[in-house]
Simulated scan of single mutants.
Amino acid sequence: MDRHNVSDAVTAEIIAQIHQEDLKIEHNYGCRGMTYWFDEERKTAFCLIEAPNEKAIKDMHKAAHGDVPHRIIEVDKTIVESFLGRIEDPEKSQDTDLNIINDPAFRLLMVIETSNYLDRLEANQYTIFTQKFHNNVSKRLQQFNGNIVKKDNNNYLVSFKSVTDAVLCAQKIQFQFKYVTPKFDPSSRKLKIALSSGTPVTNKDNLFEDAITLASHMCDVIQDPFAITSEVNALYESENRHATIDKELVRVLSVSDEKFLIHLMDYTEKVWNNPDFNVSDFSKALGYSKSQLNRKLKKLTGQSPNAFIKEFRLHKALQLLRKQHGNISEIAYETGFNSATYFSKCFLDKYHILPSKYIQQHII
C-alpha cells in the first residue's frame, strides 16, 4: 500500500483519472491496482497494489502520471480489509466512467483490554464468563459498525469509520461489563478501552502503527478505564455539532499528554529490564526533574516512577510466564528484578497469586 500527499487543488475526479492511467500500463510492471482511498479533507490518497517490489510501483506511477508515492509499505490484504472494509473498488462506483471513489482511509481505532482476572477462575467459570464477555462485545461492535481486526481472550483491536459509533460503543461495552463478569471479586474486574485515530500508511512499517501503538499505550498505563486522544475528542465534537464528551466518564488526553506518553513508553521499552535502571536515569532521559516526572506520571498513570517501573516489569514477567519462557528465577532476573524472592512478593501483591501457583494452575 502506498501513500500520496496531494495538493489542495487535487479532487476525487483527478485521483480517479490518475488511477485509470495506472491501470492502463500496470501489466508492463507486473502490478495490479486493486483499489484506492481518497480523503479530500486531509488531502491524502492510498493505493492498494499487488506488485513484485517497491520499485515496480514507483516506476508504474512515474510512467503513468509522474506522481510517485511518498511512502510504500508491504501489507496483508486480509488485514487491509479488516481495517478498511474492502480491497476492491466499491460496487456503487462501477457504473461511472472514472469510477470516482471519494472514500477516506482515516479510521478510529479501539483497543480493548481486560485484566487477567479471568485466568484465575476455575475452568468452568472461566468458560462461562469468557463467553459472556465476548458475546457482549461482539453484539456491541456489530451494533455500532465496528470491524474486528484481531482479538484474543483478553484483547480486541477494532476499526471504526465514525467517531460517534466508536465512542458510544466503548461506553456501552463499559456499562455492560459489570453484568457479564463475576460478582464475587469486583476488585479484579478491570476493563480498559482506548480510542485513537489515524491513517494506514505513515513513516512506520505496519498499517496504522502510530494509532495502534498510542491506543495500546493508553490502555496499558492510563489509570482511567476509558481514554481518548485529543483528535478523537475534536472529531466527536465536530461530528455532533460541538456536543462535549463527559470528562467524568472519559479521560481526554491533551496533545502534551500524548507526546509525553509516547516518549515515556519508547524509552521504557528500551531499558525496563536493566536491573540498574533507576528514577534518576528515568528523569534525565525524559528531560524532567524527579519532582516534575513524579507529577506528570501521577497525573497520567496514578503511579510514582518507581511503582510504574515495577508494574511494567511485572506485566512483562506475566507474559513470559504464560509463554513458559524460563523458570521463575530466570524470569525474575530477565525482567530486571535482583531477587527471585522479591519478584515473587511483588507478583503476589500485584496479581494476588504467587508465580509458582500461577504456573501450577494455568500453565502446566
Rank of each mutant, 00 (worst) to 15 (best):
R3S: 11
R3Y: 10
I18Y: 09
I18G: 04
H27A: 13
E41N: 10
T44D: 00
C47G: 07
N53P: 04
H61G: 00
A63Q: 07
A63N: 04
A64S: 11
G66N: 06
G66R: 05
S93A: 14
Q94F: 15
V111A: 04
T114W: 07
S115Q: 04
N116R: 12
N116G: 12
L118N: 09
Q125E: 11
F129W: 11
K132N: 15
K132S: 12
H134I: 09
S138C: 10
Q143K: 15
N145S: 14
G146Q: 05
N147M: 14
V149Y: 01
K150Y: 10
S159R: 02
F160P: 00
K161Q: 11
A170M: 05
Q176E: 15
K183S: 13
K183C: 05
K190M: 09
K192D: 00
L195F: 05
S196I: 04
T199R: 14
L207P: 04
E209R: 08
I212K: 12
T213L: 05
A215L: 05
C219F: 03
D224E: 15
P225I: 04
F226T: 02
A234E: 12
L235W: 06
N240D: 00
N240F: 03
I245H: 06
L261D: 02
W272D: 01
N274L: 11
P275A: 04
S283D: 08
G287L: 07
Y288D: 06
L293K: 02
L297E: 01
H315E: 15
K316S: 11
L320G: 05
L320D: 10
Q324I: 06
S329Q: 11
Y333F: 15
T335R: 06
A340S: 12
F347N: 01
D349A: 09
S356G: 13
K357L: 09
I364M: 09
